[in-house]
């Protein structure tokens, strides 16, 4: 596990030293702020219940979190391959799962950091309206869990290729498809609709978090997606050695 910590610290420092981390954070905070202003504070916002405003904010934040997660992960392994630094990791006495886990945790901490900065918006609702801290906390737990699932998808994508653009495309397609499962579930008949709803990254599994309701099945779903794609990333890295 020590290797996980060493890789985690290097990757986190890389986010803080390179422009990509700051660009992603700036875009997320800017768009999040604009959306919040338009839907809660601006002239077109209208009168809404505080709980609705918070739910809407969490809904918007989930989309931004997914985009940020994709953007943060695409460099993680593809860039190492592109720049030839993957050799250092591959020839060190560390295991592929330690590399993947260290990188994943660094991205998760950085993404969570960005998400935490957005807390001033729910805080405004809390001060000026009537929402519970529980609702805010559950909403942020949902954002973190969904973010971790998308990060795992991104890591899987970046493990597949040395080209960051290809990694970004794969991550976007897989994440987009899993988001689309929910609208698809609304238009197809059972039992397919149940399968799509069960697999959807958004919709059924995120609605609870949006409304401040914590369901164990939703937590397990996001953890399972995270685990599945991290495992897939490890297997891809192992397979690359046999190429």
């Amino acid at each position: 596990m020590r290797a996980v910590g060493v890789i985690f610290r290097r990757e986190l420092a890389a986010y803080l030293r390179s422009p990509i981390g700051y660009i992603v954070a700036a875009v997320v905070l800017l768009l999040g702020g604009l959306l919040f202003y338009a839907q809660a504070l601006g002239p077109a916002a209208g009168e809404r219940l505080s709980g609705d405003v918070l739910a809407r904010f969490i809904y918007n934040a989930s989309g931004l979190t997914a985009i940020a997660a994709c953007a943060l992960t695409i460099r993680l392994i593809a860039e190492e391959r592109q720049q030839g630094t993957q050799v250092l990791l591959n020839t060190s006495p560390i295991r592929d799962w330690e590399i993947v886990l260290g990188k994943f945790l660094s991205a998760l901490v950085f993404l969570t950091g960005i998400t935490v900065i957005t807390l001033y918006m729910p805080a405004l609702i809390f001060v000026n309206g009537k929402v519970s801290i529980g609702h805010i906390l559950v909403g942020y737990l949902g954002l973190t869990l969904m973010g971790s699932a998308v990060l795992a998808i991104g890591l899987f994508a970046t493990a597949l290729t040395r080209h960051q653009l290809v990694a970004a495309a794969v991550a976007a397609v897989v994440t987009g498809t899993m988001f689309l499962f929910w609208p698809l579930a609304q238009i197809v008949d059972p039992p397919l609709s149940r399968v799509f709803a069960g697999l959807a990254l958004h919709g059924r599994h995120f609605r609870g978090f949006q409304g401040g309701l914590l369901h164990l099945r939703d937590v397990i779903y996001y953890l399972a997606v995270t685990y599945f794609f991290l495992l897939a990333a490890v297997k891809v890295m192992e397979a690359k050695r046999w190429e």
């Binding site: 020590r2 290797a3 060493v6 890789i7 290097r10 420092a13 890389a14 030293r17 390179s18 720049q83 030839g84 630094t85 993957q86 050799v87 250092l88 990791l89 060190s92 006495p93 560390i94």
Partner: peptide
């Protein structure tokens, strides 16, 4: 053939990292 170095790290930090991942 191409040294596996991270451009954004200092030489000292990089060597520490290389040593730490070697256990």
């Amino acid at each position: 053939e191409r040294p596996p170095v991270y451009g954004e790290m200092t030489v000292g930090d990089y060597l520490e990292f290389a040593g730490r991942i070697r256990g």
